[in-house]
Structures are given as structure tokens and as C-alpha cells.
């Protein structure tokens, strides 16, 4: 932990020196980034909105890592989950229009569950083929990302919102929105921040306990550490791997909560600024510990939001600089925390 912190400080120093070469005052850049995350309620809330999705994808990537698998497919899994959530929501909206808030709530929960299952299924596919056919999960998940993107595009074409030129689906019934009773959304009504944040935090906390304190978590981790040894000790490694990928998809699907019923109520093509891929960085930075993911997701959320603010507040720095910062931070933190020191 100390090392990770040291790595963070060093990485940050390198980043800020870079801004100095670009002709900006590093302290000004730092203060912009700081204000971008904490400047006001609205700023913090928007950062937390990104954080929510990144927690979900970070958890998704990390649980696969724990089982020794590399899940590059979080982007596709969250896309499928969001499409299915919207699709089921639209199905209810058109065929059984909710008349009462309670009914609408049940509908929305059912839609979310369907979405999560779909995400889980999208994780199951590569897990299954990995175990049964020894297909590489990196290739599979990457390919499934494209399949998911294609399905999402066709979904939007067939359900285009007639009142908008943007490529987005029709909105689900406003009754199904969580916003009217959402205490978190009331704190910052101008932002898409919503109660899903609490779900994400809870998911991370629970996963942390399960991974390190339960038998089930032990099975996953031992499979990841040494599959053969695990199998010798009668842990069904293939099953565990499939299960881990299912869970990975399920967690990635959590983004649907944040996007649909928490905030926008419709599927917008390209809504995700690559949450799935930033999730890999989030998991790497947290070294796959679910609790640390809370922090690293917040950091990446702040950088994601800070990208726009840096563009706005400085003259020389553009939105792309946030990507440079992300890369430098991952490099420095992981190299510092993996440093073994001199052998004695």
C-alpha cells in the first residue's frame, strides 16, 4: 500500500512536469484537477457518476484476474447488459404500460435483473469455450465486444427515438425512473449521479469479503494462482473459471443500473467512454483488490472528468492529456508496487 502510494506520487510528479514542458504551470494543472473532482457538489457528483461505472468494470476485470483469466470483454458485457435492460424496459413500456409507481419499480428491477443475466451470459461464453475448447479468452472477449457493439447498433436502429437525431433508443416509461425517490440524485440533480453508486460500493465491499474470507473466494484465488495445485486439492478448477467469467460479466452489467434507470432511461449508442477498457486500468492500479478498486475507480473517474476541465481551464493541454496521465500512473504505480527490492 505504501509502495502504491509512493508510485502514485512519483507518477503524478512526472505528469505535472510534463505539463510544465507544455508551458503550463504544474500547480495550476493540479489545482484544476483537484477542483474538477472536489470543486463543488456537482463536480464531485459527476466524478462519482463515472466512478460508479468504473467500479463495476474494475470488479469485473479483477474477479477474472483472480481466477487467472484476462477479461478484455467488460465493454461488450456492459453493452449487452445495457441493451437488454433497455429492451426489457421498452417491452414493459409498450406492452404493459405501468400505471402505478410500485408496478413500475418491479418492472425496472426485472429489467435490471435481465440485463445482469445477459451480461453474465456474455461472460459465460468465453469462460465456457476457454474451458471446453481451450480457446483463448483474450481473443474471445475481444471478438464478443464487436458482436455486442453490432447487436447494440441494430437494437438502436430498430428502436430509434423518433424525437431525436442522436442514435439512441426510445426512452423507457418515465415512471420507471429511480430518480424521484433517489436520495443521492437529489444531492446533485443537475448531474446523472444516482443511487447505483451505493450498489457499486456495496458490491465491492461484499466481493472483498467473499474473495478473501470465504471458501468460494479461496477456490477462485487458488485456481488463479495454480490451477494444477487447485485441482489436486479437489477444487473443480474448470467450473470455477466458468463461474468467474460469469461473475465478471455480471459485474460489468452493473453499468446498466447506472446508465438506464439511474440516469438516462434510454440506450445511447456510444454512451460508454470505454468503461470496460478503463476498468482494466482500474483493476491493475488496485492490484485486483476489490476495496482498493473503490479508490482507483475514483481516481480514474476524476481523470475522466478532469479531461474536459483541463481542456477548458488551460491553454496548452487538451482532452488527450488525461489519457497520458492514466498511462503514466498505471506504469508508475504498478512498477513501484511490484518492485521486489534487492535480494539479501
Amino acid at each position: 500500500m505504501k509502495r502504491a502510494l509512493l508510485g502514485f506520487v512519483v507518477g503524478m510528479t512526472v505528469c505535472l512536469s510534463l505539463t510544465w514542458f507544455a508551458g503550463e504551470n504544474p500547480f495550476h494543472v493540479l489545482s484544476v484537477l483537484f477542483k474538477s473532482a472536489f470543486g463543488s457538489w456537482d463536480d464531485l457528483a459527476l466524478t462519482l457518476f463515472y466512478t460508479t461505472s468504473l467500479i463495476f468494470t474494475g470488479l469485473s476485470v479483477s474477479i477474472a484476474f483472480h481466477a487467472g483469466l484476462f477479461n478484455i470483454g467488460a465493454e461488450g458485457q456492459l453493452n449487452i447488459a445495457t441493451v437488454v435492460t433497455t429492451g426489457v424496459g421498452l417491452f414493459f413500456t409498450f406492452w404493459f404500460p405501468p400505471t402505478h409507481v410500485a408496478v413500475a419499480l418491479i418492472y425496472s428491477v426485472a429489467s435490471v435483473l435481465a440485463g445482469l443475466l445477459a451480461g453474465g451470459f456474455w461472460g459465460f461464453l468465453p469462460g465456457y469455450f476457454k474451458v471446453k475448447r481451450d480457446a483463448h479468452e483474450v481473443i474471445l472477449t475481444m471478438m464478443l465486444n464487436f458482436v455486442a457493439a453490432g447487436l447494440a447498433a441494430s437494437f438502436v436502429t430498430n428502436n430509434q427515438n423518433p424525437n431525436s437525431q442522436n442514435p439512441e433508443s426510445s426512452p423507457v416509461s418515465p415512471l420507471m425512473s429511480w430518480q424521484p425517490w433517489d436520495p443521492l440524485h437529489k444531492l446533485a440533480p443537475d448531474t446523472p449521479f444516482n443511487i447505483s453508486f451505493l450498489f457499486a460500493v456495496a458490491a465491492a465491499l461484499i466481493l472483498g469479503v467473499l474473495l478473501y474470507k470465504s471458501r468460494w473466494g479461496f477456490e477462485i484465488r487458488s485456481t488463479g494462482l495454480n490451477e494444477e495445485a487447485a485441482q489436486m486439492n479437489s477444487i473443480p478448477a474448470p467450473k470455477v473459471k466458468i463461474l468467474a467469467m460469469c461473475l465478471a460479466g455480471l459485474f460489468a452489467g452493473g453499468v446498466a443500473l447506472n446508465e438506464i434507470f439511474g440516469a438516462h432511461m434510454k440506450y445511447r449508442l456510444g454512451f460508454s467512454p470505454e468503461y470496460g477498457f478503463i476498468g482494466i486500468a482500474v483493476a491493475l492500479l488496485a492490484r485486483n483488490h476489490p476495496w482498493a478498486i473503490l479508490l482507483s475507480a475514483f481516481l480514474f473517474g476524476a481523470l475522466q472528468k478532469g479531461a474536459g476541465d483541463l481542456d477548458l481551464e488551460t491553454n496548452a493541454i487538451t482532452r488527450d492529456f488525461a489519457k497520458v496521465m492514466q498511462a503514466i500512473l498505471i506504469l508508475s504505480v504498478s512498477s513501484f508496487s511490484l518492485w521486489k527490492g534487492k535480494k539479501k
Partner: peptide, 12 residues
Amino acid sequence: VEATDNNLLENM
């Protein structure tokens, strides 16, 4: 400014 993603438009 150039939008990074559409969630930020309103903020900008």
C-alpha cells in the same frame, strides 16, 4: 473545448 464523451457536454 472538444467533448470527450457526451456525458460531459452539459458540464462544459
